[in-house]
Every structure is written in C-alpha cells, then in structure tokens.
Simulated scan of single mutants.
Amino acid sequence: MMKWRHGLLFPLILAICLGGLSAWLGRISEVNIEEVELNPNEPQYSMVDIDGRRFDEQGRLKENLNAEVAWQLPKSDEVTFEKPQLIFYDNGKLLYKVESNEAGYDTETRTVVFKENVVLTKTAETQRPAGILKTSNLTVDTQTKIAETKAPVEYRYGDSYGTANGMVYDYNKGFLNLPSRVKAIIYDPNNI
C-alpha cells in the first residue's frame, strides 16, 4: 500500500509544480502596453541631411528631394523641410529644380508648398528655353507637374523677363500663365 501512495504522490506534486511554474512564467512574460499621447506641438520624428530619391519604371532618377532638416508633427500628413531642394528629371534628364528656405510636403496629395525665397530653375530643352522664377511661396503638384502662386513673381524665360502678381506654370504643356499686373519684355526667338 505504501507503493501506491508514492506512485500517486509524485505525479500530483509534479502537476502542481508545473502548474505553478506555468502561472509564474505567464505573469512575468505579460507586457503591459501603455499608450502615451504625443505632444501635438513637438515633432513625432525628425531627420537631418535628407536625400530622398524616386525612380521611374526603367530605374532612372525621376525626383530628388534633399534638405538640411525634416520633421513631422503627430497626427499630421505634412512633413516640414528646412532648406529643401526638389529636383525633377524626365528620362534621366534634369527638367527643373525648386529651392527655398522652408517647405511643407503633404503625403496624401503629394504637393509641396515652398516658402521664403523660392527659386524655380528650369533647364533649356530642344523646344523650350531655360527659365528662372523667384517668389515668396510656390505650390508644386508633383503628380501633374504644375507650379503655381498668387504672390508677386520675377521671371526670366529665355530672353523674355518681367514681373507679375501670381503665375501658373504647366510643365507638360510648356505654358506659363501670368494672370495679373504683368510687366514684361517678351522676345520671340523666331523673329530675332
């Protein structure tokens, strides 16, 4: 009868020890996740010396965005850049670049709003002359390749130059629209 008690006692003690060990391991391995609300006025993240590149389907450089500093606030779709430079390419050839003191990139609409000392430089192409435009702010839609502002602008497009209040430049059409208060000297390269 003594054998029977020891034969039953060992599995019972083993089961109790294993159950206790399992409960103890379960308790110490629990991770309590505490969600902390971020300060909406402080960056969720920030980066230094940005150099982002986007390539086309053939692997050629399509867009290059670089900046000294970038940051994004919590619950915001806009990334803010200091001293940004956005450069566009087509088939690996430089089209134009936009530089300013500050910019905001909306990740949803893929538009960039350049602010303070904005300079847009367009390289010369076979059918289109080089150009440069200076203004205080400029919105660039990276999808449609349209740049626009309502602020005063100074521009030079080939041998033509002038000033205006506001402008819309459609790269795909090669069309610069100056809607109001235009002062310009325009040269037609075909009549020179």
Rank of each mutant, 00 (worst) to 15 (best):
E35W: 12
S100D: 00
Q58L: 13
W24S: 10
Y96C: 03
K93H: 02
T111C: 03
N41F: 10
L94D: 05
V69R: 15
G92H: 00
S46L: 11
V118F: 04
A70D: 01
E102Y: 12
R110M: 05
E116P: 01
N41C: 02
L120H: 03
Q58Y: 08
I16P: 02
D49T: 11
I16W: 01
S29A: 07
A67S: 15
T109I: 02
V119L: 12
G52C: 08
N41T: 06
N66T: 11
E57L: 12
R27Y: 15
L65H: 12
V113D: 06
L18Q: 08
E42C: 05
Y105M: 08
S100M: 01
K93Q: 08
I16N: 03
P84D: 00
N91S: 13
M47R: 14
D56S: 08
C17V: 15
N41I: 05
G26H: 06
G104D: 06
V48P: 00
E82G: 00
V112P: 05
E68A: 13
E30N: 14
N32M: 07
I33M: 03
G20C: 13
I33R: 10
N32I: 14
R60M: 15
S29R: 10
N32W: 03
K75E: 13
P43V: 04
N117R: 09
I16Q: 04
P43G: 02
A67P: 13
T107N: 03
Y96D: 00
N66D: 15
E30A: 15
T111P: 04
I28M: 12
N41S: 09
L86P: 02
Y105K: 05
T111D: 08
D56I: 09
D90I: 06
S46K: 09
E42M: 09
Q44M: 11
Q72N: 06
E57Y: 05
E82S: 08
N91F: 04
G104Q: 11
R27D: 14
E37V: 14
K97H: 01
K93F: 07
E116W: 02
I33H: 11
E78G: 00
Q72K: 10
D77S: 10
V79T: 11
V48L: 13
L18N: 09
V31F: 05
N101I: 09
Y96R: 01
D51K: 13
S46H: 15
N91Y: 07
T107F: 00
K97F: 07
N117I: 04
F81R: 02
L86M: 03
D106I: 02
K75H: 09
L61Y: 11
N66S: 12
G19Q: 08
K115E: 10
F114Y: 02
R53C: 04
K97L: 09
L61P: 09
A23Y: 12
G52D: 07
V69S: 06
Q44C: 00
L38Y: 06
E99F: 03
K97E: 11
A70F: 04
A67L: 08
V36I: 15
E37C: 06
S22K: 10
E37I: 14
L38H: 11
V79P: 00
Q72T: 08
D49A: 14
N117L: 05
V79K: 01
K62S: 13
G92I: 06
K62H: 14
V119Y: 07
Q85Y: 00
E82R: 07
